[in-house]
Computed example of a mutant assay.
Amino acid sequence: MTLPLFPLNTVLFPGCRLDLQIFEARYVDMIGRCMKTDSGFGVVAIVEGDEVGSAPGEFARTGCEARIRDWQQRPNGMLGIRVEGGRRFRVSSAQVQPDQLTVAEVEWLDDQPEKPLTVEHDDLATLLGALSLHPMVASLEMGGEVKGQQDLACQLAYLLPFGLAQKQVLLEMDDPTVRLARIQVLLEQLQGDLTA
């Protein structure tokens, strides 16, 4: 499967929403093609380099498909799009085209079937409910009812203020139960840092 890549300084998770302003020609063209063919593109985290200009020097090999859910012309003349995370993938090879757009051969990663939440997830579900009241989260229409462990883990991993490398590790985890346990550990570390 060939997928155009959009390297960013963020990690997108399945089911999560991201607003982007598109102004570089390579990405305006890419978005146009995606909208015409009702296809997605891949969001990968930048490891080395910048979002703007030439293709980044290095990006994470595991990313998330982005599906365009809405678009509008911004007052500044740029194209604004809202995407939603789809399937996770692993990049097997990539090449930079003459227009500096990176195109990759990817393998889709299998996500486990959704598992129901258990009592031990009550605190994390309550935390997501509290996050949903934040204006930024509300504007993305996230943080409402969750379908299960996978949904809860993805939304928390995306919304909580973890570092880029920590979020990338969470994205690469296949088991939602393990991902939720890791989120709990990261939260405890965050609380420890705040009280120190």
Results as ranks from 00 to 15, higher is better:
residue 38 D to Y: 03
residue 38 D to P: 00
residue 39 S to C: 08
residue 40 G to N: 07
residue 41 F to H: 04
residue 45 A to F: 03
residue 50 D to V: 04
residue 51 E to C: 03
residue 51 E to Y: 03
residue 52 V to F: 13
residue 52 V to M: 10
residue 53 G to T: 13
residue 54 S to G: 12
residue 55 A to I: 10
residue 55 A to T: 10
residue 57 G to P: 00
residue 58 E to W: 00
residue 58 E to M: 03
residue 59 F to Q: 02
residue 59 F to R: 07
residue 60 A to E: 13
residue 60 A to K: 03
residue 62 T to P: 00
residue 65 E to Q: 05
residue 65 E to C: 07
residue 66 A to F: 11
residue 67 R to L: 09
residue 67 R to V: 05
residue 68 I to E: 00
residue 68 I to A: 02
residue 69 R to Y: 03
residue 71 W to E: 10
residue 71 W to G: 04
residue 76 N to A: 02
residue 77 G to H: 12
residue 77 G to K: 09
residue 78 M to G: 00
residue 80 G to M: 04
residue 81 I to C: 08
residue 81 I to S: 10
residue 85 G to V: 06
residue 87 R to I: 04
residue 91 V to N: 03
residue 91 V to D: 08
residue 92 S to M: 01
residue 95 Q to P: 02
residue 95 Q to Y: 06
residue 95 Q to I: 04
residue 96 V to F: 05
residue 97 Q to K: 12
residue 98 P to A: 14
residue 99 D to N: 15
residue 100 Q to K: 14
residue 103 V to E: 05
residue 111 D to R: 10
residue 112 Q to K: 13
residue 112 Q to P: 06
residue 115 K to I: 08
residue 119 V to I: 14
residue 119 V to C: 00
residue 124 L to K: 11
residue 129 G to H: 13
residue 129 G to Y: 02
residue 129 G to Q: 12
residue 129 G to D: 06
residue 129 G to K: 10
residue 130 A to W: 10
residue 131 L to I: 02
residue 132 S to L: 08
residue 132 S to F: 06
residue 133 L to E: 11
residue 134 H to D: 08
residue 135 P to T: 06
residue 137 V to K: 02
